[in-house]
Design a binder for these strands. Structure first.
Length: 426
DNA sequence: TCTGGGGTCCTAGGACCC
DNA sequence: TCTGGGGTCCTAGGACCC
């Protein structure tokens, strides 16, 4: 068997890069993309990073700065990013059949060769091809474990002269590189763990590999231990070509303005239940329980309230009206008057694949009902697939523009997925 | 006025059982 | 004077990821 390397392919400033594909004039200029509700900065071009704009900064605090530095600002456009992501993934598949789509902008590939130089050439070719075919710039890091491949990717991105590709192998090279990686930049080490580690004198990734396993396990539990071993070149994270089935499905949004009335919350919740139920059906899943949560704005001075409740369903379902009913009864139960609410959300829990559960006598009795509901949902989904999301929807979510809807003041078009939004050529 | 959304896994502690 | 031990399951909270 040929020795193999993990290749971590990461799109550079992905959301910004997607916007630039359709606005090439923004190349070389500062650009940021905001989170839902135009809340905070979640993607920055290199020029925006150079201006000192931080990840996660609230957008409203930077309005003036954006204007005075001619920063182009976009609302997030997940229809566009999701579609661009699958295009990138399609290209990557040509370079290795063993591929794990890790996130919207990252993939792990297994690449096999006896000759590391040959691998570097392949990775460089992959990078060029992705850019030529999709317009998205990527960097590639190669190493013996996923965590080390992430480190290599970071170097490919940051270091001058790598051409966006870096391979890390051999004990001496790995040791030298890890010495230059701050421990908080290691994949799997978050803010809390980093603080704990620094307090104990662990500053670099190399420092971490030099502690005993017992010590690391005690400080950071088995998660930290796995990270440490991966840094030592021992693979602990499985390679998952088939993503495991989802265990929960969530839909929640912050409101465009604060909401106090129960009926407005009910409308919003209906809309989120619809979306969550659609997600269930596209994955062929059914929920066994529904959870609803409700919260005020934690940054405000106003009185705070967080409510949540969970109810089981009589039997697992992905039928929107049944899920609506259950969710609304939870909401009415946890709702308290007199608060300014910022967010409501729904979680579908105890998910099971359709047809994978034990049937009961009731199921036989209800079979005709069940069939009718299924075919109604199927029709609904196929109409929406053909004519666009929400062409057909439930009345409970209300009609027209609502105060709870998200702010999306700077949304670009769904260039690649919506015929209606393709710019007209004159 | 304005601070995202959607996930997973691990652990500790309590309930419960024999 | 004295109040078992071991196992499983569930849940809430914490930490992490992108």
């Amino acid at each position: 068997m040929e020795p193999f390397f993990y290749a971590m392919v990461d799109c550079n400033n992905f959301y910004v890069s997607c916007e630039r594909v359709f606005a090439p004039a923004l190349e070389g200029r500062p650009v940021v993309v905001l989170s839902n509700n135009d809340g905070c900065v979640i993607a920055r071009s290199n020029e925006a990073k150079a201006l000192g704009i931080g990840m996660g900064e609230p957008a409203f605090k930077r309005e003036t700065f954006f204007r005075s530095h001619s920063v182009t600002v976009f609302s997030s456009n997940y229809a566009l990013y999701g579609d661009m992501s699958s295009r990138v993934q399609q290209v990557l598949t040509r370079f290795s059949p063993e591929i794990e789509h890790y996130s919207i902008d990252e993939s792990f590939l297994i690449m096999r060769s006896r000759d590391p130089r040959r691998l570097l050439e392949q990775a460089a070719e992959m990078r060029r091809t992705v850019y030529r075919w999709t317009g998205i710039p990527v960097c590639v890091g190669l190493a013996r474990t996923k965590t080390l491949a992430k480190v290599a990717n970071r170097i490919a991105k940051k270091r001058e002269g790598t051409n966006g590709v870096w391979l890390m192998d051999g004990a001496a090279q790995v040791r030298d590189e890890l010495a230059g990686v701050p421990v908080e930049d290691v994949w799997g080490i978050g803010r809390r763990s980093a603080r704990k580690l620094r307090a104990c004198g662990v500053r670099s990734a190399l420092d971490l590999t030099r502690r005993t396993r017992d010590w690391v396990r005690e400080k950071l539990t088995v998660c930290g231990l796995r990270t440490m071993m991966e840094l030592q070149g021992i693979p602990c994270h499985p390679f998952e070509e088939q993503p495991p089935a989802a265990k929960s499905v969530t839909c929640s949004r912050s409101f465009g303005t604060r909401i106090t009335r129960l009926d407005a919350l009910e409308e919003a919740l209906c809309a989120y239940v619809q979306r969550a139920a659609e997600k269930l059906r596209t994955r062929d899943l059914q929920a066994g329980a529904v959870q609803v949560f409700l919260s005020t704005n934690r940054f405000a001075e106003d009185p705070q309230y967080n409510g949540s409740g969970c109810l089981p369903l009589d039997r697992p379902t992905s039928h929107t009206p049944s899920l609506h009913r259950k969710a609304l009864s939870i909401l009415r139960d946890i709702y308290r008057e007199g608060y300014k609410y910022q967010k409501v959300g729904v979680l579908m829990l105890d998910l099971a694949e359709r047809g994978q559960r034990q049937l009961t006598f009731d199921d036989y009795r209800n079979a005709p009902d069940e069939t009718r509901r299924d075919s109604l949902m199927k029709t609904l989904d196929s109409v929406n697939a053909r004519f666009g999301r929400d062409s057909l929807r439930f009345g409970g979510a209300g009609l027209g523009r609502k105060e709870w809807h998200m702010r999306q003041r700077r949304l670009s078009r769904r260039f690649t997925t919506s015929w209606a939004e393709i710019p007209q050529v004159r």
